[in-house]
Design a protein around this nucleic acid. Sequence first.
DNA 1: TATAATTAAGTCAAATATAGTCAAAGTCAA
DNA 2: TTGACTTTGACTATATTTGACTTAATTATA
Lengths: 155, 155
Amino acid sequence: MSNITDIIERYLKQVLQSKNQNMIEIKRSEIADQFQCVPSQINYVINTRFTEEKGYIIESKRGGGGYIRIIRIEHQEQSDLLDAIIKLIQPTVTQQASVDIVERLLEKEVITEREAKLMVSVIDRNIISVPLPIRDEVRSRMMTAMLTTLKYTSK
Amino acid sequence: MSNITDIIERYLKQVLQSKNQNMIEIKRSEIADQFQCVPSQINYVINTRFTEEKGYIIESKRGGGGYIRIIRIEHQEQSDLLDAIIKLIQPTVTQQASVDIVERLLEKEVITEREAKLMVSVIDRNIISVPLPIRDEVRSRMMTAMLTTLKYTSK
DNA sequence: TATAATTAAGTCAAATATAGTCAAAGTCAA
DNA sequence: TTGACTTTGACTATATTTGACTTAATTATA
């Protein structure tokens, strides 16, 4: 348990806790210096220890003034239902199936009426407007992205 | 957040606010002196932080008595704002411009935080995932569909 | 009044500063 | 001794900073 990945993981989680907040912002190269490892090691730590499933969101910016932001999130109540739906719509999904899903989420009050309308409007075949079968793949990714967002965003 | 671009951006926005008006006029060389940077840095700040998508218009004059004017765009009605944005994003729109637009709508409380996250998630280049320039056309239709929905759906 | 000088702002590309990706090499436990 | 996990570094992508050169407006001068 003394590999550098675990050490950096523990350090970052400790900083998160001690600051008593759900966000920290780091400079990749500074952390790499601090722990004497290559910068890409930090990406490895983040990709394996601070994943969405584990309850984290990562934001970052390159260039001057760049940073990596680690945000702790709480999954919403209905996240099991959302996971099941996400599984169901891989790797393609039709417009009709998507509309049915959105309506079900509305009935279950997972989403608002306005959110439902937004979702239905954006997954329309005439809006995506690329040929089948690509279209249903694009829609699958779109739905997955939105459902994943719902998983960790409260009303 | 210690890069000069962000600092100057914050300063200019603060002056805009404190003056309680939607226009400020600056002398490029004076601001450059004040923040000890080259004059063209000011152009960089303006070109990346005070874009039309973010809701600003820039006017300027060279020569003696020259200036740069930053004007914040205001709309009377929400539907006017949405119409203006829809016009702006035809027939293509980049991811960055779209994110800027969504952030502006959130600021103006036209949409909720959750709606903003839904919109940002679905217009991501990796989600649409078709080659340019088609991708920016698809995104334009997607944004237009969602904005049109917002126009006709109350909160 | 032309023309030259001066005073601004604009453009663009190179240099610099970050972070991301990916695959090869290394490690370690079962 | 194999397979999963970790470490490393070369290469890529992106954002910012800088300065040389260009363009435009005003002012001074012949």
